[in-house]
Amino acid sequence: MEIVMAFVIGILFMTATYLMLSKSLLRIIVGTGLLSHGAHLLILTMGGLKRGAAPILGGNAESYTDPLPQALILTAIVISFGVTAFFLVLAYRAYQELGTDNVEEMRGTQKDD
């Protein structure tokens, strides 16, 4: 399963990168969303998959899956939500102020050129 997941993660990263490289702000934000999914799965996979019961004591399990990556990912999920929201509002405000969602048009012109 880990091998399969490696490829799934690779594809997630690939599509995320492609979206982030485009010029539309919306696609960039969607790309960051995909990127965080990929990163979360990567952390989880690196710790090993299905190595025992869910990390909750009781239930007479012999072994548990690694709880540390899960804690890290939980933090990461919430943070990425905050960052995505911030980014969304940034895009929205930039669009309001500048009238475009094309990042190439947002570059502006240098005054002393």
């Binding site: 989880l44 998959l49 299905k50 019961a53 869910a54």
Partner: peptide, 9 residues
């Protein structure tokens, strides 16, 4: 992958 907290979140 047995991560109930993550799934919920």
């Amino acid at each position: 992958f047995r991560a109930p907290d993550l799934a919920l979140t």
